[in-house]
């Protein structure tokens, strides 16, 4: 029997360390892929402290928790900020959602499977850290994207995450995105450094997927609750994200 894997391509965005811009990158990449004609489902995998909805300025009534607790129809919980982008919101401030038990995992797995039938791509934006739900989401998707910054703690945490996923969960394909870098050169440099160490100690070779420069546009986008890709201004960040999305579209 084949274990059910989502029919569309699924990608998990994680980082180990918090505050590296995971959510921002997953939202913007999702939107850039929508512009390329994909129908994308964005799952807020930060089950205890959700914020995809906040970043998109959505008002959310029901969340993944309602599906699990009250047997709500998963489809009614989806929020559509755009016709081809759906968000499956999670609840915020609910500690019991952080540590998923096996039954919850099985239920969420089924929910995702049902929902993903209508999409080309499923993005999961997980919580920071390497808790059970982070590891679980990372193991049910096809592709693991790890977001890093030049900050040494971010690189160390990303390495630890890759190590655990590789050693305990048999994951072998990782993609790196460097955020908050000065330019593409620094992005490649930061990723190459990590790739080298992962290759040496873990014997797997993550791939460089792209970079997002640190610029005012990204910071303002979060504050205004309008994603950079949808902002009236265009900038380097916007351009880099579209490049990242293009590379992803080719690989997925």
């Amino acid at each position: 029997m084949e274990f059910p894997v989502f029919a569309p391509s699924s990608v998990c965005f994680s980082s180990g360390k918090g505050g590296v811009g995971k959510t921002s990158i997953s939202i913007n990449t999702a939107l850039a892929l929508v512009d390329r004609g994909f129908r994308v489902l964005l799952v807020d995998g930060d089950l205890g402290l959700a914020n995809v909805d906040v970043m998109l300025g959505l008002s959310v009534q029901t969340t993944m928790r309602d599906i699990i607790a009250n047997d709500e129809d998963p489809r009614t919980v989806l929020v559509y900020p755009e016709p081809n982008l759906a968000v499956l919101p999670a609840s915020s401030g609910v500690p019991d959602m952080v540590n998923l038990g096996p039954e919850d995992q099985a239920v969420i797995g089924q929910i995702l499977q049902v929902l993903s039938a209508d999409f080309d791509l499923v993005f999961v934006d997980v919580a920071a850290g390497i808790g059970p739900s982070v590891l679980w989401f990372n193991t049910v998707v096809h592709h693991n994207v790890v977001v890093i910054t030049p900050d040494p703690t971010s690189i160390t945490d990303a390495y630890a995450l890759i190590k655990v996923l590789m050693r305990d969960h048999n994951r072998r394909r990782f993609y790196l995105v460097a955020n908050m870098v000065r330019n593409e050169k620094e992005g490649i440099q930061v990723c190459q450094g990590l790739i080298k160490v992962v290759k040496k100690f873990l014997n797997v070779e993550p791939e460089y997927l792209g970079f997002v420069p640190r610029d005012n546009l990204m910071a303002r986008a979060v504050r205004d609750q309008v994603p950079a890709v949808r902002s009236a201004e265009t900038g380097k960040a916007d351009e880099a994200i579209r490049k990242l999305a293009a590379r992803m579209a080719r690989g997925l």
């Binding site: 390495y159 630890a160 100690f201």
Partner: peptide, 28 residues
């Protein structure tokens, strides 16, 4: 076990791993 190489299982990074990570800081 898988990935043990005879060492005990910890999620902590070894000294060698840390050194390698810090040596690879950009600007190197």
């Amino acid at each position: 076990h898988r990935g043990s190489h005879g060492k005990t299982l910890t999620t902590e990074l070894s000294r060698e791993e840390r050194e390698a990570l810090f040596a690879s800081k950009p600007g190197d």
